[in-house]
């Protein structure tokens, strides 16, 4: 699966459009991670637990999007966008969407 966030796959031609594909995950914070984050709130600095949590969630959202594109018969996704929104206190939604296409 070839994924880019530009409107084409350089060096290849788009031959078919399959429409929008998307994937999303909603993740809640982990209690252990939240305690560490409490310490970090005093000292400042990177919250590694959250960085990992969000990276894993985005990966999963991307996987879901890729699965959807595969089931449509696409071999590439172009113009991918990410968006984050907080749904409730302590939970975040990670959404990724793009256009499934077939390239040659």
């Amino acid at each position: 699966m070839n994924i880019t966030n530009i409107e084409s796959i350089p060096g290849k031609t788009i031959v078919e459009h399959f429409g929008v594909v998307s994937g999303s995950t909603v993740r809640a914070k982990h209690v252990g991670r939240d305690i560490m984050a409490g310490f970090k709130n005093v000292f400042g600095g990177e919250l590694k637990g959250y960085t990992e949590l969000l990276a894993e969630s985005r990966e999963e959202a991307m996987e879901r999007m890729t699965e959807q594109a595969k089931s449509l018969g696409a071999n590439a996704i172009v113009n991918v966008r990410f968006s984050t929104s907080s749904v409730a206190a302590g939970a975040a939604e990670l959404y990724v969407y793009g256009t499934a296409v077939s390239v040659q």
Binding site: N41, G44, E46, L54
Partner: peptide
């Protein structure tokens, strides 16, 4: 564009907190 051999999506993220 004609010289491009490979293209892929790359990303990086960080969560940073402020001190007290």
């Amino acid at each position: 564009p004609e010289r491009v051999k490979e293209s892929r999506l790359v990303n990086g993220s960080v969560v940073i907190s402020i001190d007290y």
